[in-house]
Design a protein around this nucleic acid. Structure first.
Length: 316
DNA sequence: AATGCGGTCAACCGCGGAATG
DNA sequence: ACATTCCGCGGTTGACCGCAT
């Protein structure tokens, strides 16, 4: 014979826990410790099954549970761990002291997942997807990097894109003809005066300015004015093509402790510190980062991210 | 004030692997 | 070795709340 049943389900209470039930459970566990969930309800005088008691304790009553909103660092950790572990909520929770798997799962589904979708990131694969990207992000991406976004091939491969997105793509497409140099300039010029194809509004993007008219051939100033050694950064991700448009709430000064390329499945990238003679090309983009020197002083540096070798496959 | 709607989250459900007799 | 149950996990549900109409 196997074990005896954990509990007789008949006559057992279900639903929300009453304060008196919580008190009984806490008092019992404080005396006897958690575990033995099969016999615990009877011994503690609870009309609940052991499973219900275990859940109540592990997800709510445990004294080491941290309450309140998730911090930025916690959220960042969840995203990074999820990109590696997937929906292994218990494994993620094990790396976040005071948070339960249930809490993390709920937070993912109600907050993080939606935000990733809104920003065009597939919450399952963590790769950017054009068909999930909201229109402003798509436009920003296209305008920043016209040479990288092969819209003709996208149209062929993304036949199932939603009609609204398709309309935007076809709007942009004519501007992609001819040299990329011209298209970059014309897109930048058009951006400031064209109405938003999605809404018909001619309003500018709120709060975040379009990257400061970095034209092909522009020579970038050495804005840092510092001769500090350039730290190796692992910041590259598609959103850095136009960082503020993708994650306006994220502080990119987080540096390599922040979002990294693994999170988005990017294999490699090249970055070049901006010097007084660094030319802007059609496949590069500016990235601003900060680091700390040996005295703990914050140093800002501009990088030129060369995206020639970027694999666009991850966008589809 | 009533109703509808969407967001949140505690709690339940069902499954698979581990444990037990 | 096998049957049975436990345990822990991920997915889902539904009560509750705030807000808009």
């Amino acid at each position: 014979m196997g074990r005896a049943p954990c509990c007789d389900k008949n006559g057992l209470k279900k639903g929300p826990w009453m304060p008196e039930e919580d008190d009984k459970l806490i008092a019992y566990i404080q005396t006897h410790g958690p575990g033995n969930w099969r016999t615990l309800p009877k011994n503690a005088g609870l009309q609940r099954c052991g499973k219900s008691c275990r859940l109540r304790w592990t997800n709510y009553l445990r004294p080491d549970i941290k309450r309140g909103r998730f911090s930025f660092e916690e959220e960042e950790t969840i995203i990074q761990l999820h990109s590696v572990l997937g929906n292994k909520w218990s494994a993620i929770a094990a790396r976040l002291p005071g948070r339960t798997d249930n809490e993390i799962k709920n937070y993912w589904n109600t907050h993080i997942r939606k935000r990733l979708l809104r920003n065009g990131i597939d919450p399952v694969t963590h790769a950017p997807r054009l068909d999930l990207m909201d229109l402003s992000s798509l436009l920003s991406f296209s305008m920043c990097n016209p040479s990288l976004l092969n819209l003709t091939s996208l149209l062929k491969t993304q036949a199932l894109l939603n009609p609204e997105l398709l309309r935007v793509v076809t709007t942009i497409l004519p501007l992609q003809d001819g040299s990329t140099d011209l298209s970059l300039q014309s897109l930048q010029e058009n951006h400031s005066r064209d109405p938003d194809p999605a809404t018909g509004s001619s309003e500018e993007q709120p709060s975040v300015p379009f990257p400061e008219c970095l034209k092909v051939g522009d020579v970038l100033p050495n804005s840092s004015g510092l001769n500090d050694p350039v730290p190796q950064q692992s910041l590259a991700s598609p959103m850095l093509l136009c960082p503020d448009y993708y994650f306006p709430e994220i502080d990119f000064d987080q540096g390599s402790n922040g979002l990294d390329e693994k999170m988005f499945g990017i294999d490699s990238f090249r970055s070049t510190p901006v010097s007084g003679s660094t030319p802007m090309t059609s496949s590069s983009t500016m990235v601003n980062t900060s680091s700390e020197d040996e005295n703990g002083q914050s140093c800002c540096s501009n990088y030129l991210l060369d995206l020639k070798s970027f694999d666009m496959g991850c966008f589809i």
